[in-house]
């Protein structure tokens, strides 16, 4: 069961990565990141079956961080949208120095 879980986790993570790479919609990319976090959580839970409860506690922390991140990230997206009227990353290059 653990090996299968790890395999699912790897596949989900890869899908998340490919999503980040191919999509340009900031919200979709955000969701891809959430998917990657979920994949990692799956791995944690799988390992917690092997090594004890610490894995599950880490999952809780990851979820907390993900929630915080989603709140801040979405606030940023809203803020950007107000200025640029778009969430397409191609049109957002504020990082350029």
């Amino acid at each position: 069961m653990i090996n299968e879980a790890l395999f699912f986790s790897a596949v989900l993570f890869t899908i998340g990565v490919v999503g980040v790479l191919t999509r340009r919609n900031a919200i979709i990319i955000f969701m891809c990141v959430e998917l990657m976090l979920n994949a990692v959580n799956l791995t944690f839970v799988a390992f917690s079956k092997l090594y004890g409860a610490a894995g599950q506690i880490f999952v809780i922390f990851v979820m907390t961080v993900a929630a915080a991140e989603a709140a801040v990230g979405l606030a940023i997206i809203i803020s950007i949208f107000r200025h640029r009227e778009t969430v397409n990353l191609q049109n957002i290059n504020l990082l350029k120095g």
């Binding site: 790479l21 340009r24 990353l89 957002i92 290059n93 504020l94 990082l95």
Partner: peptide, 14 residues
């Protein structure tokens, strides 16, 4: 490389 395109950065990170 400093294009400001987050997508490019993501590629580099990957």
């Amino acid at each position: 490389a400093q294009s400001g395109q987050v997508g490019t950065y993501a590629w580099a990170i990957v």
